[in-house]
C-alpha cells in the first residue's frame, strides 16, 4: 500500500514537472509550478525530511509562485506577454533530451556508487549535540557545526539584493500594478497577518528542537509582507527607506558580529562561548528571520522599475 502511494506521488511529480515545462501558456506553467511545489513538499514528508518540506511549502509553493504571477502581471502590463513563442527547433529539442538523460544517468550512477565516507558524520553530530546549544540536529548543523556555510549563504542573499538595488534605475520606482480594493480581503488581512506573524515566530522557536528555523520563519514573514504588498498596502509607506535597508543588512551584520567576536576572546572564528551557544543562535536566527523576510519582499518591491525606453511608445503611462 505504501508502495502504491509513493508510486502515485512519484508519477504525479514527474508528470506535473513535465507539463510545467512543455506547456505553451505561461500562466499554465506557473500554475503547474505551484502544484509541483506542493507535490514536492508532500514528497519530502514521505521521505522523512520535514525541514525541507517546510521550506518547500513556504518558498516553492508559496512565494515563488506569487513572484512568477507578479512577473506575469508586469509582462502583461507592459505588453510583453507573448503566449505563442516559436517552438524550439528539432535539433535543439533532441540535444536537450539527450543531455538531460545523460545528466540523470550520471546522477543515478553517482547515487549508486557513492563511496562510504571515511568518518561517520551521523555519529559525530550525535556526539556533539549536547554542546551545540540546541536539540534539533539540523539547526545545530546549520548554525553551529557548519555555520560558515549559512553565513556565506546569507551573504549571497544580501549581495543579490544589493545587485537588485543597483539595477534599479529610476529614482522613484513606483509599483505600477494596482492593489486589490476588496473590503473582504482587507478584513481577512486583519486576521491573517497576525496569524502569519505568530506562525513565523513559532517556526523560529520550534527550530531549537523540532523542524523549523530562521529560513522557514523568514519565508513565512516574507509571505505576510508579500500578502500585504499585493493587496495594495505598501510597507515602504509605513517604514522609512533607511530602516528597510538596515533591516535587510541586520541578519548578516549580527551573524558576522557574533562570528568575529569569538576572535576577541582568542577562540577560532565562528565558535560560540561555552554555554552561551543557544542564546547566540537564537539572536542570530531572530535577526536572520527579519532580514530574510525583507530580502524576499524586496524581490517584489525593487524589481518594479519601469520598462526600458524602447517600448515607450506602448500604451502604458508613467
Amino acid at each position: 500500500m505504501n508502495l502504491l502511494i509513493d508510486f502515485t506521488l512519484l508519477i504525479g511529480i514527474l508528470a506535473i514537472a513535465l507539463t510545467c515545462l512543455i506547456s505553451r501558456s505561461l500562466f499554465r506553467s506557473v500554475v503547474f509550478f505551484i502544484l509541483l511545489g506542493l507535490m514536492l513538499a508532500i514528497g519530502w514528508i514521505r521521505l522523512g525530511a520535514p525541514d525541507i518540506a517546510l521550506a518547500e511549502a513556504a518558498i516553492g509553493a508559496g512565494i515563488t509562485g506569487v513572484l512568477l504571477l507578479d512577473t506575469l502581471g508586469h509582462l502583461k502590463k507592459t505588453g510583453n506577454l507573448e503566449n505563442d513563442e516559436p517552438a524550439p527547433g528539432r535539433k535543439r529539442l533532441i540535444l536537450a533530451i539527450v543531455s538531460s538523460f545523460t545528466l540523470v544517468g550520471l546522477l543515478l550512477w553517482a547515487v549508486f556508487n557513492q563511496p562510504t565516507p571515511a568518518i561517520n558524520i551521523h555519529l559525530l553530530v550525535t556526539e556533539a549535540m549536547p554542546e551545540s546549544g540546541v536539540s534539533h540536529p539540523i539547526t545545530a548543523v546549520l548554525l553551529n557545526f557548519r555555520s560558515y556555510d549559512t553565513l556565506l549563504e546569507v551573504g549571497v542573499l544580501v549581495l543579490a539584493v544589493l545587485v537588485g538595488l543597483a539595477l534599479q534605475t529610476d529614482q522613484q520606482a513606483q509599483d505600477s500594478l494596482p492593489g486589490l480594493p476588496n473590503p473582504l480581503l482587507h478584513a481577512c488581512l486583519t486576521l491573517l497577518i497576525p496569524a502569519m506573524l505568530i506562525t513565523s515566530m513559532y517556526l523560529l522557536w520550534a527550530g531549537a528542537d523540532r523542524p523549523g528555523g530562521a529560513f522557514q520563519a523568514g519565508a513565512m514573514l516574507a509571505a505576510a509582507f508579500i500578502l500585504l504588498h499585493i493587496s495594495g498596502i505598501k510597507l515602504s509607506s509605513q517604514v522609512s527607506h533607511r530602516m528597510m535597508q538596515a533591516g535587510l543588512l541586520l541578519g548578516f551584520g549580527v551573524f558576522l558580529a557574533v562570528a568575529t567576536s569569538s576572535l576577541i576572546g582568542g577562540r577560532p572564528l565562528l565558535t560560540y562561548p561555552e554555554g552561551g551557544a543557544g542564546m547566540l543562535i537564537l539572536l542570530i536566527e531572530l535577526a536572520l528571520t527579519l532580514s530574510i523576510g525583507l530580502i524576499l519582499l524586496s524581490l517584489f518591491t525593487i524589481a518594479n522599475s519601469p520598462p526600458h525606453h524602447k517600448d515607450q511608445g506602448g500604451d502604458h503611462g508613467h
Binding site: D51, A57, V66, L69, P211
Partner: peptide, 25 residues
C-alpha cells in the same frame, strides 16, 4: 508531527496565489 506544521504553512499561504492572481494577472 512536523508534517502538521507544513500543513499549517500551506493553509496560511493558500490564499496568496489567489490574491496574487487576481491583483497581479
Amino acid at each position: 508531527p512536523a508534517a502538521r506544521d507544513t500543513a499549517l504553512v500551506l493553509a496560511l499561504l493558500a490564499m496568496l496565489a489567489a490574491v496574487a492572481f487576481v491583483s497581479r494577472v
